[in-house]
Simulated scan of single mutants.
Amino acid sequence: MKHIGIFGGSFNPIHCGHVALAEEILRHTSLDEIWLMVSPHNPLKQQNDLLDDQKRLALAEKALQGHPHINVSDYEMHMPRPSYTWNLLEALTADFPGHVFSLIIGGDNWDLFNRWYRADDIRRKYPIIVYPRPGSTMVPADDDHACCHLTVVNAPLLDVSSTAIRARIQRGESIIGMVPDSIIADVERFYHQ
């Protein structure tokens, strides 16, 4: 039985912080693999500057070549929209009965977790791995640990974001060191408008 961490997001675009975080989580947990789940649309976010699904997926696949324990998945793109994490986890559990799934989320999402669709069910049924994000308190209350299997990974914060990358491209600035070298040209081409 494999223990799989589900690391979802828009990855608009994937960047060095995502890759480093996934590697750090693999080092500090019992996960066998991380499935980087490229999301079609987050119901809690605006979608106006979201790059085409297939382009974001292709960028993630190219960026993660050479990372054998991090797999890019388009599974969520084939699910009904809006996409909810509870539905995703339940579908994965049904389709992959030989795997155990954990949810990987940032501290900012943990702060808002009570707003998520079927948050209590997720907490009861699935282990949750929380990592730091700028501006999040990420201090789970004692009852958080009591109601669910919660792991906090104190991974280092990298000062890089997809929003900043998109803004730098629009200003004609370099994104070297912000995204893996293998995708710099593609990211600049896809996001330059």
Rank of each mutant, 00 (worst) to 15 (best):
S39W: 00
P40Y: 02
P40I: 04
H41M: 11
H41L: 11
N42T: 07
N42V: 02
P43G: 07
P43A: 04
L44E: 10
L44Y: 14
L44M: 15
K45S: 09
Q46R: 10
Q47G: 11
N48Q: 13
N48G: 08
D49Y: 06
D49F: 07
D49W: 05
D49V: 12
D49P: 03
L50N: 04
D52E: 15
D53C: 11
D53T: 06
D53R: 10
Q54K: 11
Q54G: 11
L57A: 08
L57F: 15
L57R: 00
L57C: 08
L57Q: 00
A58G: 05
A58Y: 03
A58D: 14
A58M: 06
A58H: 08
L59R: 04
A60L: 04
E61A: 08
K62Y: 03
K62D: 08
A63N: 00
A63Y: 09
L64P: 11
L64R: 06
L64F: 07
Q65F: 04
G66K: 13
G66C: 12
P68Y: 04
P68S: 14
I70C: 00
I70T: 03
I70L: 06
I70W: 02
S73Y: 02
S73N: 08
S73C: 10
S73D: 00
D74H: 08
Y75E: 03
Y75G: 03
E76R: 02
E76Q: 10
E76A: 12
M77C: 09
H78Q: 15
H78F: 12
H78A: 11
M79L: 15
M79W: 00
P80Q: 05
P80C: 05
R81T: 02
R81S: 06
R81L: 02
R81F: 00
P82S: 07
P82R: 09
